Amino acid sequence: MKKNLTLKSTILLFLIGIIVFGTNTICAQQSMKYGMLTFNKAVNISGKQRMLSQKMAKSYLYLVENPSDTKAKRDLLTSKIIFEKQNGIINQNSGYKVTKDRIAKVDVIWAEFKKLIETTPNYDNAKKIIELNTDLLKATNDVVSAVIVESKGANQSDANLLEDDGAGESDLELKKMINMAGRQRMLSQRLALYYYANQTTLKTKNSEQMLNNVFNELDGAITMLLISNFNNSQIDDKLGVAMSKWEQVKNNKDKLMNQGFKPAEMYKISNELTKAFNAVTGLYEKVKI
Results as ranks from 00 to 15, higher is better:
11 I>C: 08
161 L>I: 04
157 S>D: 08
155 N>G: 09
13 L>K: 09
80 K>S: 13
100 K>P: 05
227 I>W: 04
13 L>H: 06
74 R>K: 15
221 A>I: 10
276 A>L: 07
162 L>R: 09
229 N>Q: 14
81 I>H: 10
289 I>K: 04
143 V>N: 12
38 T>P: 02
237 D>Q: 11
48 K>D: 14
251 N>L: 15
220 G>I: 00
283 L>I: 07
89 I>W: 08
183 R>S: 13
104 A>Q: 13
98 V>L: 15
172 L>W: 09
123 Y>S: 08
284 Y>W: 03
208 E>R: 10
8 K>D: 02
271 N>L: 11
114 K>S: 15
108 V>Y: 01
256 L>Q: 08
139 A>Y: 10
46 S>I: 13
186 M>I: 02
268 K>P: 06
179 N>R: 12
76 L>R: 03
122 N>Q: 00
285 E>G: 05
287 V>E: 12
153 G>E: 09
73 K>C: 11
205 K>H: 09
64 V>E: 07
263 P>M: 05
115 K>E: 14
220 G>K: 04
27 C>M: 15
216 N>P: 02
242 A>N: 08
224 M>P: 00
8 K>V: 02
3 K>T: 02
61 L>V: 07
7 L>E: 13
9 S>L: 15
204 T>I: 01
254 D>L: 13
77 L>H: 00
